[in-house]
Amino acid sequence: MTFQIEYWHWVVFGMLLMMAEIVVPSFTIFWFGLGAMVLAALLAVLPDLSLSIQMVAWALVSCAFALAWFKFLRPRMVDRTKAGVAREAVMGETGQVILAPQSPRRGQVRFSTPVLGADEWEFICDEEVETGDRVMIVDISGNTLIVKKRA
Rank of each mutant, 00 (worst) to 15 (best):
17 L>S: 03
3 F>T: 03
27 F>M: 13
4 Q>D: 05
53 I>Q: 10
9 H>N: 07
2 T>P: 04
83 A>K: 13
89 A>Q: 12
70 F>P: 07
121 W>E: 01
48 D>G: 02
73 L>F: 14
64 A>C: 12
60 L>A: 07
139 D>A: 14
30 F>Q: 09
14 G>P: 13
53 I>M: 06
66 A>V: 14
92 G>A: 02
35 G>A: 03
63 C>K: 03
12 V>C: 08
147 V>E: 09
100 A>E: 11
8 W>R: 02
24 V>N: 00
109 V>M: 10
84 G>R: 08
98 I>Y: 05
134 R>H: 14
90 V>H: 10
111 F>D: 09
1 M>S: 06
73 L>V: 15
151 A>K: 13
44 A>G: 01
8 W>M: 01
91 M>N: 11
73 L>E: 07
60 L>D: 01
117 G>Y: 06
92 G>C: 01
9 H>D: 07
135 V>F: 01
19 M>G: 11
22 I>F: 15
34 L>R: 07
11 V>Y: 00
93 E>D: 06
41 A>P: 01
33 G>D: 11
60 L>G: 09
97 V>G: 11
17 L>D: 07
56 V>S: 05
25 P>V: 07
14 G>D: 02
110 R>F: 05
28 T>H: 14
34 L>W: 09
111 F>T: 12
109 V>G: 04
6 E>P: 00
98 I>W: 03
3 F>W: 02
128 E>C: 11
1 M>A: 06
119 D>I: 14
82 K>Y: 10
140 I>D: 05
107 G>M: 05
16 L>W: 10
16 L>R: 14
11 V>P: 03
80 R>C: 07
135 V>Q: 00
24 V>Y: 01
99 L>A: 05
118 A>P: 00
149 K>S: 11
13 F>W: 09
57 A>E: 07
12 V>H: 11
79 D>N: 07
95 G>Y: 10
119 D>S: 15
72 F>V: 14
111 F>C: 10
142 G>D: 04
47 P>K: 10
9 H>C: 06
55 M>D: 11
148 K>E: 15
112 S>P: 08
76 R>E: 15
111 F>N: 11
83 A>M: 08
63 C>L: 14
84 G>F: 03
149 K>F: 09
122 E>W: 02
136 M>D: 04
143 N>H: 08
56 V>Q: 04
103 S>I: 02
104 P>K: 01
61 V>C: 05
55 M>E: 09
111 F>Q: 13
124 I>P: 02
35 G>Y: 05
54 Q>F: 03
136 M>H: 09
82 K>L: 11
57 A>V: 03
9 H>W: 13
110 R>G: 08
69 W>H: 15
64 A>S: 14
80 R>G: 11
78 V>Q: 09
56 V>T: 09
5 I>Y: 15
5 I>Q: 09
2 T>W: 04
60 L>N: 03
135 V>T: 02
131 T>M: 15
31 W>Y: 12
67 L>K: 12
113 T>S: 08
150 R>K: 13
110 R>A: 13
3 F>D: 01
125 C>F: 12
4 Q>F: 05
77 M>R: 12
148 K>T: 09
146 I>P: 03
13 F>C: 13
92 G>Y: 01
108 Q>A: 14
73 L>Y: 12
51 L>N: 04
141 S>D: 14
63 C>G: 08
47 P>Y: 00
111 F>E: 07
34 L>A: 13
106 R>H: 03
134 R>C: 15
69 W>L: 15
139 D>F: 12
115 V>L: 10
129 V>S: 08
24 V>R: 00
89 A>V: 04
43 L>K: 10
